[in-house]
């Protein structure tokens, strides 16, 4: 039988403690996220997926950038890294290559990952770096007070687009797909079952995976656009989301308060950066090739 983390933590699933408490830094709860924000739900889905996963908890590392979503790393009771704005992916790249045994998950926001960190995003996807990206898309820079970002739909109002945004936003699944991501999905903070299953799939598989989560920002984005609370936005997702698994990612554009296409769009096998590198060098260098042996095994004669 497969060992899962939930079995290891069974003793705690009683009436006094939330079953995810072993996965949270309880000394940091409550988190900073607003009431009806979707980030807590995304964290909940991620930790539920971790709990259901066969991957030992100590082998999972979370890397975040800066922003509301960037705070995620601070709440997970895993090896977790809160890095600089936009640099979560290259940090995760170094971490993964230095210890290939780790399952490295980057959880960060849309602005962090595809605006300031956009270059890292496309190159990690191109290399098929074996890391999992969970991109929580709330359509704006929320931590700094609600400025428009790379995903803000046209005409949506933000503090720096007081007359409405006139820039073309990214279609994130298409961006990830066209750069070579081997797993691409989009869900909303309402579709927690799909999201949890999707994160679980991404954790188990190898290669660059990208999961976009459309998530309500009640305090700045929704308020400025008079969209109500997060609960109203979940209702909007409920009424306007259409699951189209396997659809061409070019059709996943998001327009302001129009239909949301969600689902699992891409799931394909491709050799990861690490496997390509070791396989190629083995052939090219021949017998003399010494693969990277991982941490601790470093020469040294002092102390």
């Amino acid at each position: 039988m497969k060992h899962t983390n939930s079995q290891a933590d069974r003793q705690i699933a009683d009436g006094k403690h939330h079953p995810l408490e072993p996965y949270l830094r309880m000394d940091r709860i409550p988190h900073i996220w607003c009431s009806t924000c979707g980030l807590g739900t995304c964290l909940n889905s991620f930790l539920t997926a971790v709990r259901n996963s066969a991957i030992p908890r100590e082998n999972i590392a979370v890397v975040s950038g800066i922003g509301c979503t960037g705070r995620t790393a601070g709440y997970v009771n895993l090896d977790s890294f809160h890095t600089t704005h936009g640099r979560a992916i290259p940090f995760a790249t170094g971490l993964k290559l230095a210890n290939p045994e780790l399952t490295v998950v980057v959880i960060s926001g849309d602005g962090d990952l595809v605006a300031i960190g956009g270059n890292h995003f496309i190159h990690a996807a191109r290399r098929n770096m074996d890391i999992n990206i969970i991109c929580v898309n709330n359509f704006n820079y929320a931590m700094t007070g609600g400025q428009f970002g790379p995903t803000t739909p046209e005409t949506a109002r933000t503090t720096t687009a007081p007359y409405g945004s006139f820039e073309h936003p990214f279609n994130l699944p298409f961006l990830a797909d066209s750069c070579g991501a081997t797993y691409v999905a989009r869900w909303t903070a309402l579709h927690v079952r799909h999201l949890t299953a999707s994160i679980g799939e991404a954790l188990e598989r190898r290669g660059f995976s990208f999961i976009e989560v459309i998530s309500p920002c009640p305090t700045v984005y929704a308020r400025r656009n008079r969209l109500g609370t997060g609960l109203d936005l979940l209702q909007f997702y409920h009424d306007n989301s259409v699951i189209k698994n396997g659809i061409d990612t070019r059709e996943c554009d998001i327009r302001f308060q129009e239909q949301l296409i969600i689902g699992k769009f891409v799931d394909e096998e491709k050799t990861t950066f690490h496997d390509t590198m070791t396989g190629y060098l083995k052939d090219a260098v021949g017998e003399k090739y010494v693969p990277y042996v991982g941490p601790m095994e470093m020469p040294g004669n002092g102390d």
Binding site: A13, H18, E21, L24, I29, P30, C37, N44, S45
Partner: peptide, 15 residues
């Protein structure tokens, strides 16, 4: 268990 996985605050769960 839908309430359990939707709750952003880890405040509700079912057994």
């Amino acid at each position: 268990g839908l309430c359990e996985v939707m709750c952003p605050e880890f405040a509700i769960w079912v057994t």
